[in-house]
Simulated assay, not measured.
Amino acid sequence: MKLPATAHTCQPWRIHEITHDFRLEDVWALSTPGGPDDFPRLVQQFVSGDTSDNPSLVARTLFAIRWKLGKLLGWDAPDSGLGSRVPTLRDRLPADLRDAPPGTEFRGGPFTSLYLTYDEWAAEAANRTVHALIHMGWVQDETGGCRGQMAVLVKPNGLIGKAYMAAIAPLRRLVVFPSMLRGIERDWQAGTARATKR
């Protein structure tokens, strides 16, 4: 479920310390009910996913088209990413986060883990169109338990980046993220069922 921006901005998360020049694009509630210690499992599940195994054929097709366009237009060339076109946000982290392990890395995909705490995790990616962040947090839900929350923050790269973000906005909000969230929820329920059987 899509949430208002305040669901992210009102939280006392560390991500706010390093994203003053990024724009908050989306905030989503994740149907991943759990206890206070379940956040690492959510992060591990998320990073082990892959765009090629998205449950939606439309979303898989859109990702495949995006990767082909990126290759054709040079959007994802090595000199367009972190450490080349833009510095990593790890350089902005306060010392306690910078000196700690950054968290689990993605199995596939362009994102690199920035930091992991007991209730939040962030990863970044950059290409010729944007410098982007995925932020996941662990929040209290209305039942007194906890659930995940995901936010996407971006810094578009000039006119190309702004045009790209405007062009993909409807697809991202109507197809890609809803199908990705369904996959997260399905995997979470399966993992919870396995843990209950042990």
Rank of each mutant, 00 (worst) to 15 (best):
P4V: 06
A5I: 07
H8I: 07
R14H: 04
H16Y: 07
H16M: 05
E17H: 07
D21G: 12
L24R: 07
D26N: 12
V27E: 02
S31R: 06
P33C: 08
G35K: 11
P36G: 12
D37K: 04
D38H: 13
Q45C: 09
V47D: 01
D50E: 08
S52K: 15
D53C: 08
S56G: 06
S56H: 12
L57W: 09
A59G: 10
T61V: 11
T61M: 11
F63T: 05
A64R: 11
I65K: 03
R66D: 07
L69T: 04
K71E: 14
L72H: 11
P78Y: 05
S80H: 10
G81C: 04
T88R: 00
R92L: 14
R98D: 03
D99G: 11
D99A: 15
P102L: 04
T104K: 03
F106T: 08
R107C: 13
P110Y: 14
F111L: 09
S113R: 01
Y115P: 00
A122C: 14
A123W: 00
A125N: 06
A125S: 08
A126W: 01
T129M: 12
G148Y: 03
Q149W: 06
M150S: 02
A151Y: 00
A151M: 02
V154L: 13
P156M: 07
P156D: 07
G158W: 06
L159T: 09
I160F: 14
A163R: 07
A166N: 05
A166W: 07
L171C: 09
L181R: 04
R186A: 12
W188R: 08
